[in-house]
Design a protein around this nucleic acid. Sequence first.
DNA 1: GTTCCGTCATACCGAAAAGGTATCGCAAAA
DNA 2: TTTTGCGATACCTTTTCGGTATGACGGAAC
Lengths: 305, 305
Amino acid sequence: MLESLDVRQLRYFAVVAEELNLRRAAERLFMAQPPLSRHMKRLEEFLGVALFVRHSRGLTLTTEGERVLEIVRPVLELETATRERLHALRVAGARAPVIGLTTAFEQGVFAALESRLFAAHGPGLRLERATSPRLVREVRRGRVDAAFVALPLDTPGLHVVPLSYAEPLLAVLPEGWPEAAQGRHRLRDLSGKPLFWFRREGHPAFFDHTKRVFAHAGFAPMLKEEPTEHDVLLARIAAGEGMGLFPASFSAIRRTGVVFAALAEGNLLGIRLGLIARTDFEALAESLVRLAKDALTCSINLSAT
Amino acid sequence: MLESLDVRQLRYFAVVAEELNLRRAAERLFMAQPPLSRHMKRLEEFLGVALFVRHSRGLTLTTEGERVLEIVRPVLELETATRERLHALRVAGARAPVIGLTTAFEQGVFAALESRLFAAHGPGLRLERATSPRLVREVRRGRVDAAFVALPLDTPGLHVVPLSYAEPLLAVLPEGWPEAAQGRHRLRDLSGKPLFWFRREGHPAFFDHTKRVFAHAGFAPMLKEEPTEHDVLLARIAAGEGMGLFPASFSAIRRTGVVFAALAEGNLLGIRLGLIARTDFEALAESLVRLAKDALTCSINLSAT
DNA sequence: GTTCCGTCATACCGAAAAGGTATCGCAAAA
DNA sequence: TTTTGCGATACCTTTTCGGTATGACGGAAC
């Protein structure tokens, strides 16, 4: 099926033509390789000419491809310039920033930070709450100017500042389990138990991190799909369906039927707060880091609770 | 929620800024008013400035709006030019045309036409079968170069050639109904019967046309949602659930349990074949018209069968 | 002053497109 | 021959976009 010729695709083409390698181009465009492959194919279909010759190690431009590149380049340049001019106009409008807050921590953690944010930027400030990988995407697209996220996280192309605030993960066990009597566990002692855990898509970098920690600790849980809502998850744990791993701050939630227990691997299995921002928002980022350091002094040590 | 700033939206903005009236602008852009309203709102959100002042009769540009228009205009012009250059390149590539065929007629009608099309344009020719309103859209977007469609149809902005081939609609009745014994009916005699009929979205212009004819003929059917597949529809008619109205060519399909019957209103209630093409494809359109006249000599008279 | 009409905004829905993961086939490199 | 890196394909999920229906509002007409 042919299509409508979007400027975005022309931009993709320009990058591919520069890299002559789809995977690398996709990386530069912050996307996966297959969609880019498809875009190039469709562009070729639309134009009715082959733009590339594919060989098993990369691509080369055909003469038509070079011609198209020449035709296309000026628009892309002008479009970039225009985008910048509009962006400048936007900044000139003294727009209040949009700041993201990860939902990875219990939201009470941000209480002090939030009031300071509003004090510093006025009531026009917008807060966006979402998962960390999603905030990364929003910051890249410019929908959000800066965001507090949970590390570890994949953030190529963004300005990242790890902050000193961090939390270990705690085991959350059904009250009925014999293990719930103890206050502290090694992961391996919980091996084989059903564990509510998220799907890799939701947070690939952190997922891979935990997988390594699990493997190293000799922990082989029986994974169960984690519900998206915290309260639902806690309810199902209380029902005895399995255990969960929560950032320590969630222990502020006291729910009947569940027990929070520290883990010996707390120093490895934890999340750390970080600030991300587009590289052109360093000024904002710096001021936010200062604010955060002021507001979040009460770091929970990673190795104990 | 903010967003990513697409060139398309800038183009929409330019049109709105020119018309200073959302409904008219939407018409020029071949879209409905609400989506356009939303686009403008989002653009304003993204830029962080008000582009328009809304009053109850139309819009006026703010000074920021004028400024944005100035910034934006050059890109749009260059983009249009680039689009044309790429289009030219596409034409230079001697691409085989893509031709649409409406599914409103029984496909056997097009048998002779199809072989002539392939003879004229070679095996590279692509045929796209879809409903007529959908083909209109595809032609507008440039995915299809020209299309044979069923009239009446809304086709502003496109080159339209009504052809001499036309078909009345026939009533298709369950064999068990007493009316099935007669070979010809007035619509009003079938009033109150359940009729399988399509939803307005699928074909607004034709729907409105038939509504007028129905009203004029004193025909008030009990409408039932029509299944999308012809064979399914025939099966349900055969099951006695209701009747249908089919273009005459479908009577070539002999299905047990259903009876085709002519209608007195055949001269009003029918569809006519037409050719549509983008205005820059007139040459192709003319050659297609000649082909079609040659292939489709056997027109079925609208007033009898 | 009340009614009517045109305009833009909102709510909701379905279709289309874009991006992601998993996986394959292939050719060059080891 | 095996391995490795590449692009292509298949399939799924999420997002976006456009459409219809409908509401709120202000000027125009009576």
